[in-house]
Design a protein around this nucleic acid. Structure first.
Length: 282
DNA sequence: TATCCGACCTGTTGGC
DNA sequence: TGCCAACAGGTCGGAT
């Protein structure tokens, strides 16, 4: 499932295969895929036709393609989204939602394929910071060199919520999902239900370091699933699964202490943790 | 105003 | 074998 590291792999692929090309047209095959484009599918297509992609950017799990003229094509892969560069003659995928064609047809077309339709595409103006207006409220992600660790700590201290909720709040820190939240908390020996405001500055710094390390490891693993002709996100790729320490490992021994990993229902999802390494708050 | 929680969506898995 | 419920989870909007 696409997480920040996989989105970054997609960004690199798009930078190679789509950047600097001119979009000739957009075909929306499922309106839900452009639901975040308030003016509708026809307007979405109108705003892309004839525009040149000038770069490929990412913040957290969002990707965007700045276009000449000052707008950008924004993409979120949701849970099952893929952005594929395919030859135009290739048969349509079962869950193909949007097709972008380019004036240099020989280099293929860009397809947005999304089984569960949680992801989507939209076109927005860019703010002065070069970020699409629709995601201007999203915090920087921990892989961003400009991520402000002190500001993150101060924001945590102000929050009357629990640690994992705070990690999943994209306005505090972006790019962290359920899997990497559990993995980073395990590495930091912190319980998910601990009050967000209870960490010292040093402990916050440790947690951020663990988030970065687990994401960097996943990015390195995700990069191996690519071949050179193809921008591919394989949501079912098991490559990094083998490196996970707690997520999805209910009942299996903790890799640190051997205690069986537990799974607890948590806001319509699951939290995985080691009951010995990660003591619950009193 | 801040925080919480259900709905959205579809394929897979497991239980009966 | 077939049916059904549970599950996966990021984001948004309504509820508290």
């Amino acid at each position: 499932m696409p997480e920040l590291p996989e989105v970054e792999v997609v960004r690199r692929g798009l930078d190679q295969w789509v950047a600097r090309r001119v979009i000739s047209g957009a075909q929306v095959l499922h309106p839900r895929a452009v639901r975040r484009h308030a003016a509708g599918p026809a307007d979405f297509a109108d705003r892309l036709a004839g525009r040149r992609v000038t770069a490929v950017r990412r913040r957290g799990k969002y990707l965007w393609l700045p276009l000449d003229g000052g707008s950008a094509l924004l993409a979120h892969l949701g849970m099952s989204g893929q952005l594929l560069v395919q030859p135009g003659r290739a048969p349509d995928e079962k869950h193909l939602r949007v097709r972008l064609t380019f004036d240099d047809t020989a280099r293929g077309e860009l397809r947005f394929v999304d089984q569960r339709t949680f992801g989507g595409l939209s076109v927005h103006r860019l703010t002065g910071d070069g970020v699409p207006e629709a995601i201007a409220h999203i915090a920087r992600d921990p892989m961003d060199p400009a991520f402000d660790e002190d500001a993150f700590h101060d924001a945590l201290r102000r929050r009357a919520t629990t640690l994992k909720r705070a990690l999943l709040d994209q306005t505090l820190i972006s790019g962290v999902g359920n899997i990497y939240a559990d993995e980073a908390l395990w590495r930091a020996r912190l319980h998910y239900d601990r009050p967000a405001g209870s960490l010292t500055r040093r402990r916050t710094a440790e947690l951020v370091r663990h988030i970065r390390e687990v994401m960097a490891a996943a990015l390195a693993a995700g990069g191996t699933s690519f071949d050179s002709l193809y921008v591919n996100v394989n949501g079912q790729s098991g490559y990094f699964d083998r490196s996970l320490d707690v997520y999805g490992r209910e009942g299996l021994p903790c890799r640190r202490c051997g205690t069986p990993v537990r799974r607890r229902p948590w806001t319509n999802r699951s939290s995985y943790f080691c009951p010995r390494c990660q003591r619950p708050p009193r």
